[in-house]
């Protein structure tokens, strides 16, 4: 009989991470954890967005951007999340390649559309900020182009999961693609340093501290926390869906094999 894809004890001889991570990585334990944690995660997300938006609306207009600075409270956190989600996927891809854990596959698959969503928000809000501030919707500079490539990578990963019927093969293909394409993250981060771009350099995480005024930094960081909480909430929900989908597939196979007999 084929190994249970939802069991933590598949593929004998494969080295597993130890401790709490192993216990949480058991699909049944994860479903239990998700049921307990989701209301708290969702509540925290709503609260952080409410505080973040209130702080954003109360913040002063920028001396150069005016009220257009309000777009930054969406654009910057979305840009951070676009890269953070990819790092979560990279860690999951390592889980697939090194430990061949099915929950790592589920985490990878669940994160790709979310990463695409945050990157789309980053690109759309950046464009809507660029038109009044730069006088153009788009320029093919290093930062904008590399973020567009990240968006295409996310779409490619979503497509990989759709193309392969065998989810094990899809997981390995997606993991290898994710690990190969991770090079885009340092390229995005350092694009404003390595090349002469229209996009401004880092103004929060930089040597010498943030160059953003405290009145704007507070809503910005609160919105960044809200976006992060949103991602973890949605990721938890999406991983739960993947576990249920695998259970459904297993039940369908069992029923089909029972009917054949």
């Amino acid at each position: 009989m084929a190994p249970d894809p939802t069991s933590a004890n598949v593929l004998p001889g494969v080295v597993r991470p130890v401790g709490w991570l192993t216990r949480l990585a058991n699909p049944a334990t994860f479903l239990h954890f998700a049921a307990l944690a989701l209301p708290w995660f969702a509540g925290t997300t709503v609260l952080l967005f409410a505080v973040g938006l209130a702080l954003a609306l109360a913040s002063p207009p920028d001396y150069q951007q005016g009220l257009t600075v309000l777009i930054m409270y969406l654009h910057v956190p979305a840009a951070w999340l676009a890269m953070m989600v990819y790092m979560v996927m990279t860690a999951s891809a390592l889980g697939t390649v090194v430990w061949r854990h099915p929950l790592a596959d589920a985490a990878q698959k669940a994160a790709a559309p979310l990463g695409a969503g945050f990157t789309l928000i980053c690109l759309a809000t950046g464009s809507l900020w660029g038109k009044p501030m730069w006088g153009t919707w788009w320029v093919w500079d290093a930062r904008l182009t590399s973020v567009l490539i990240l968006f295409l990578i996310y779409l490619g990963l979503v497509a990989i999961w759709q193309v392969f019927e065998d989810q094990g093969r899809a997981a390995r293909a997606a993991a290898i693609f994710t690990l190969t394409a991770v090079v885009i993250i340092p390229i995005i981060h350092f694009s404003v340093v390595w090349w002469n771009t229209l996009h401004q350099p880092a103004s929060v995480f930089r040597m010498g501290g943030p160059s953003v005024a405290a009145a704007m930094l507070r809503p910005l960081m609160t919105m960044a926390l809200a976006f992060t909480a949103l991602f973890f909430t949605l990721h938890l929900m999406a991983v739960r869906n993947e576990i249920l989908r695998r259970r459904l597939r297993r039940l369908a196979i069992l029923r089909a094999s029972g009917e054949e007999r």
């Binding site: 005016g66 257009t68 309000l70 979305a78 928000i121 759309a124 809000t125 809507l128 900020w129 949605l234």
Partner: peptide, 25 residues
Amino acid sequence: DPHTGFIVAAYLIAAAVVATMVVAI
């Protein structure tokens, strides 16, 4: 503000993308 339209559009697009992700899941 002369750029109100851009600000509102940015927030509407972000809300639509987030709502799509939530509803799809």
